[in-house]
Design a protein around this nucleic acid. Structure first.
Length: 311
DNA sequence: GCGACAG
DNA sequence: ATCTTGTCGC
């Protein structure tokens, strides 16, 4: 059975995860690698991806992972895939990627198979990049595993390396005037780990932008700003909206009983639907037979597609 | 016992 | 992340 994605993993698992983060961190590229990233108007940029995972309320395992692709600069959704998944790892601050990234990588892989022409040129990720305990947040993790440029966009400050959401920090926030205003987030070593960004004119809370992969912080901030019709950049916002919507429409549908309810309400046998999901297309459904528990599974796929190799 | 805590 | 209604403002 799927492990309790609620329990804190043993220290042994956490140190394995840390080792994996340290190993993959050496592959992060924290500078612009594409021509469009340096262009004042992002000329050449046509597709931006966004990913998010939403959860089923009373359930720590079931979730919906969404990948959307938006056109640039129109910011219209040109691709969407939302799919129910069964999480195997619990949420532990600093190790978010081990919970969510495997399903996001799979989504990118399916996109590469089904609609390679819609592969995004950059991914906006809900969470941090190098602004992280080990300097390797979920945006870096997804970037390295897919070899796509990635930007970390967090809604709350991760208090790490001396960064604190204290009075001084809140003062700086209040000094932000117009949309696009920023201030640097400097770690203890003096390195700029990210930027606080007022994403639009009337947004009290800033976004915390950091480099994920294959992009400079300056370009990451500028692009994030260009994606904000509202506080949350459109690619991430659309992924969030659509993953929640998918859950809302999926819950209560047959074939998806709540774990404990089966024995109580359905003591008798029914056709073995098991834990299959309805895709709405009658396609075979999700089966995260990752085989195991919480392990190094988040880093299992090392390649996504042409030119997207990671060894 | 108390504070911290991306999603 | 999720639990939750109304309310103030453009």
């Amino acid at each position: 059975m799927a492990l309790e994605a609620t329990v804190r993993p043993p220290e042994e698992t956490l140190s394995l995860w840390k080792r994996e983060q340290a190993r993959l961190k050496t592959r992060v590229v924290d500078r612009d690698t594409e021509a469009w990233q340096r262009d004042p108007d992002f000329s050449g940029l046509q597709r931006i991806g966004g990913v998010d995972v939403s959860f089923v309320k009373g359930n720590s395992v079931r979730a919906c992972a969404s990948l959307v692709v938006l056109s640039y600069p129109e910011l219209e959704v040109v691709y969407e895939e939302s799919r129910m998944v069964s999480l195997t790892a619990p949420y532990v601050s600093g190790f978010l990627a081990f919970r969510e990234v495997p399903f996001l990588v799979e989504a990118v892989q399916r996109l590469q198979e089904m609609e390679p022409g819609l592969m995004p040129q950059v991914l906006l990720v809900d969470g941090n990049g190098v602004l992280h305990h080990q300097g390797f947040g979920v945006a870096c993790h997804l970037g390295v595993l897919t070899d796509l440029p990635c930007i970390g966009v967090a809604k709350k400050l991760l208090q790490v390396d001396g960064l604190e959401n204290n009075a001084l920090h809140r003062e700086k926030i209040q000094l932000l005037q117009a949309g696009g205003d920023t201030f640097p987030l400097m770690g203890g070593s003096g390195t700029i780990l990210g930027m606080a960004l007022k994403s639009h004119d009337r947004s009290a809370k800033p976004l915390y932008v950091s480099v994920g992969h294959k992009m400079s912080l300056e370009a990451a901030v500028r692009l994030t700003r260009h994606c904000c019709r509202f506080r949350i950049p459109e690619p991430v916002r659309q992924a969030d909206i659509r993953s929640r919507e998918y859950i809302r429409r999926t819950l209560g549908l047959p074939g998806t009983p709540v774990p404990g309810s089966q024995k109580l309400h359905r003591p008798r046998a029914c056709p073995k639907e098991g834990s299959r999901e309805f895709t709405g297309e009658g396609r075979p459904s999700e089966d995260n037979s990752q085989g195991s528990r919480m392990d190094l599974k988040a880093s299992q796929p090392e390649t996504v597609g042409p030119g997207l190799a990671v060894k």
